[in-house]
Design a protein around this nucleic acid. Sequence first.
DNA 1: CCTTGACTTGGAGTAAACTCTAAGTAGTAA
DNA 2: TTACTACTTAGAGTTTACTCCAAGTCAAGG
Lengths: 139, 139
Amino acid sequence: MTYRIGELSKEIGVSEHTLRYYEKEGLVVPERGENNIRRYTEHNKLWVEFIIHMKETGMSLEDLKNYTQLWESGEEGTAEMIEILTNHREKVKKQLDTFRKNLELLNKKIDFYQNSLKENKSANLYKTFVDKKKNDEKL
Amino acid sequence: MTYRIGELSKEIGVSEHTLRYYEKEGLVVPERGENNIRRYTEHNKLWVEFIIHMKETGMSLEDLKNYTQLWESGEEGTAEMIEILTNHREKVKKQLDTFRKNLELLNKKIDFYQNSLKENKSANLYKTFVDKKKNDEKL
DNA sequence: CCTTGACTTGGAGTAAACTCTAAGTAGTAA
DNA sequence: TTACTACTTAGAGTTTACTCCAAGTCAAGG
């Protein structure tokens, strides 16, 4: 079973424009059927999905282009594929850490501002700009 | 104590170009001293660092510009600041999830290819392109 | 005095990843 | 038949976030 560009686009939530762009870049090149119409196979679909997952964690299309070529080369590219993947894994691990830390920071900031709102309402105090500034900087 | 642009740049690892760009965008506007030279205060420094942290988790400069303006408005902007922060927190949580999932995927892929390399070496088998394709698609 | 180095400006240029346009063809539904 | 929709192409345009350039000012060290 194959997909037309419009079908695949809807199935996976990637615009037709983008799919054509990926084809131009050599990332996912579907076969062509009658009337020169693109026919995406199940494998093509899985490959696009893989690309999306890698992009979600910040892999560049450049790297993905590279990786795709290695994949297409068969056995010989395997070692280099592993290298790309492990390099990326390290990047993902670091980013996970960054995200965790920044989630903490966000929690603190949000707490701080929610409290400063509450205090202002209940005590009807005017919390000056300067105070706010000072407290905010501690976060 | 204040910093010149070059000093701040070195301290926080952001290029002078970028600092000037942030100023142009109204994100961090330092005072000027003698000879019209930028003087970044401790607060300016903290603000740039905050910007960097938010950018690390994908907040756009547009949102940060907005946020900065609200901060400068004093009390009145607080509710909207909280909104920006909580919206972003949700995004960060989702991204954390995405990253975790994709780390799992990477682990599987790497395992798969490392095993296929090992098998080929020890058994001296030719693992065909087609086989590889099939197994890879399962991931 | 001269060079070096840090600073200033406005504005142009760049990279990545789309995103869209124009002009056209081909198949289907009423 | 006519309208509608999906598809085709090459190539231009857009967005974000820088990044750099040219031309100039200014203070300190040798």
